[in-house]
């Protein structure tokens, strides 16, 4: 098991290096002086040309491209991600500021969509051909067809503007920190964000469950005289779970991507929100770092998913 994880990590590192190399290359190609990306613009504004050159020397910016990449990479490893062009804030500060909000949103959405998707999909498969199954199929189709942000807008109009039940946007007011203050803010963005994922997981869980139920070992389980719940859950669902977990891993990038737009709709102060602002303001260092970070989180998530699959499926674990 440990060897398996180590092997996966070893595949994961070169991928990240290549992408970081590309991102650095793109960063060098974009307009703007590399020094200004590295230090606080407030300071750099007061520097003379000679001081600039000294700094270049100090940061190794006169060295070859590869050497510069090495220095940059070492900096990134030490948590020095450079500075944003807008306001000269260190990018690491922006990350620390914004990350909790994004994590909160995605984790809630992920949990909700996984649980709801599995329950509804399994239910649908067990009631195959019934009216409930057909309606869930159509609802699932609608779920993957409605643009998330449009669904968000409609939810905003109904629940925030017309009914006034939930706040229009934002995370929480300063000074309010209990879960009851948080909950109303996160409900709408998280539900809207999880819509597409829930529909996807549901559709997949249904077909995976149907597939598992058609297997011969279900007949074996039944021939042993086991009760139906045990056949469906312990034999059917347990086997159907592996592909569903794999699918959730595949869909995670979609969830992360979706949060970019949803954070915008609900003014959720997360990374996605900062990303849009950076793209609009051509704040290249920030754009690149967030892109790099998103790749890192996708790769990390896929690693976690792989380990999870191995844990629930002995065929993967023991080979």
């Amino acid at each position: 098991m440990l060897i398996y994880i180590i092997r996966r990590v070893l595949i994961f590192i070169p991928m990240l290096l290549v992408i970081s190399f590309l991102v650095y290359g793109a960063l060098e190609l974009t307009p703007g002086d590399a020094v200004s990306a590295l230090i606080n613009p407030e300071v750099s504004g007061r520097l003379t040309e000679a001081q600039f050159n000294e700094l270049r020397e100090a940061y190794g910016l006169n060295k070859s491209f590869l050497a510069r990449y090495g220095i940059w990479l070492a900096n990134v490893f030490q948590g020095n991600f450079g500075h944003s062009l807008a306001g000269g804030v260190p990018i690491s500060t922006i990350f620390l500021d914004r990350l909790p909000a994004t994590l909160e949103l995605s984790v809630v959405a992920l949990l909700f969509s996984t649980i709801m998707g599995c329950i509804l999909g399994t239910f649908s498969a067990l009631k195959r051909g019934s009216i409930a199954d057909s309606s869930l199929t159509v609802v699932g189709m609608l779920g993957v067809s409605i643009p998330e942000f449009f669904f968000g807008l409609v939810a905003l109009l109904i629940f925030a503007l017309n009914l006034g039940w939930l706040p229009v946007g934002g995370r929480l007011l300063p000074g309010y920190d209990s879960i009851w203050d948080r909950a109303p803010h996160i409900i709408m963005p998280a539900m809207v964000l999880s819509l597409m994922m829930t529909a996807g997981v549901m559709r997949y869980a249904r077909s995976s469950m149907l597939d598992a139920l058609s297997k011969e070992f279900i007949k074996t389980a039944r021939s042993k005289g086991l009760p139906e719940w045990r056949i469906n859950l312990m034999h059917g669902f347990r086997v159907a779970l592996t592909p569903v977990v794999v699918l959730i891993g595949f869909r995670l990038p979609l969830l992360i991507g979706g949060s970019v737009i949803i954070e915008q709709v609900f003014q959720w102060p997360g990374i996605g929100n900062a990303f849009i602002a950076a793209v609009r303001g051509s704040d290249y260092p920030l754009v690149m770092m967030i892109a790099l970070f998103s790749v890192f989180s996708v790769l990390l998530a896929s690693l976690v998913i792989d380990v999870l699959t191995a844990l629930i499926d002995p065929r993967v674990r023991l080979n």
Partner: peptide, 19 residues
Amino acid sequence: SELFMSFPQIILVLLLVSI
């Protein structure tokens, strides 16, 4: 293809749009 697919699609699209 793995390289392209390790980005969340919208992030990659926006990155390219900004470039």
